[in-house]
Design a binder for these strands. Structure first.
Lengths: 150, 150
DNA sequence: AAAAAGATAGATCGATCTGTCTATTTTACT
DNA sequence: AGTAAAATAGACAGATCGATCTATCTTTTT
């Protein structure tokens, strides 16, 4: 048991986020999550029906945060070229902030089986949204350019 | 039990390679490895002392194969520019051959704890060798250029 | 103050995991 | 053919996993 600030549900999500991202999903046990979150075992299953749903919550929050950050970076400038540059700034800043552990979605994907369709769907949706966002920025460019930037 | 060609030790390594790479290390159980390799449980521990040593064998083979491929790609051309281009050709070809599942070392790293020093060492050695190889190719370029290519 | 909801600790379940062991069969070599 | 090594199947141990349950304590709401 460690931290005790904020409501248990958020503590669980924050702790799971850190652990899943930094040491992997399968390498993280439910016991470590509740122990480091300072939350009772029963409380976990009160807010999340399973370990996988905790992973999905992590990916969902990650998706909204990440896309939000990207949009705030690119929204402040006008021209297409500047938006691209800002997008890469975001990538680098974000990557540095997270100690270069790479894309959370790809990391989780690398330990995901074909059977985990729910997880796969979230990951694919994230990548789809990212491509759609780039397509929006690059409206006037060719498809090949969009693919290349991606 | 599936395949039955070649000696058990190689079948184990081949199967572990495919499974560790395609679905992750922790997501792969020893039972699945021996079942798909068509090898008895005891035979696994006859050739490898643990699951982790099987992972290390996979990473080692991966390292030699990968560096070998890179050198054969870049060895056929002469100029520095061509070598760089050939190196990226290798990257793309290799990535496509493996269905875009990314760098095996980084994937394993994403599910590795600080405690797994043996695994971390192999991964770091791989990246170190890669940088050293690039430095060799880019002998006459600045350090910043080396970093950028990497 | 009473009632309802939220959170706790901890025992416990069945499943699965890695790794060990024994006993039997297959293979390889002289 | 005979012997030693290699490989097999399968039972087993001990640990850990995710998940359920009960029973108690705390907080919030009315």
């Amino acid at each position: 048991m460690k931290k005790k600030t904020g409501d248990p549900k958020q503590r669980l999500l924050d702790t799971a986020t850190a652990l899943f991202y930094n040491q992997g999903y399968h390498a993280t046990g439910i016991n470590q999550v509740i122990e480091e979150a300072g939350v009772a075992r029963a409380s976990l299953y009160l807010h999340y029906e399973s370990k996988e749903s905790l992973l999905l919550a992590f990916l969902h929050q990650r998706h909204t945060d990440w896309m939000g950050g990207l949009k705030s970076y690119t929204g402040e400038v006008g021209k297409t070229k500047e938006k691209i540059s800002a997008a890469f700034d975001f990538l680098f800043d974000n990557n540095e902030k997270e100690h270069f552990r790479g894309c959370a979605f790809l990391n989780i994907l690398s330990e995901t089986t074909d059977k985990d369709t729910a997880v796969l769907n979230v990951i694919q949706d994230h990548k789809k949204d990212l491509r759609a966002f780039l397509a929006e920025i690059l409206t006037n460019e060719k498809q090949a350019v969009k693919d290349h930037v991606y």
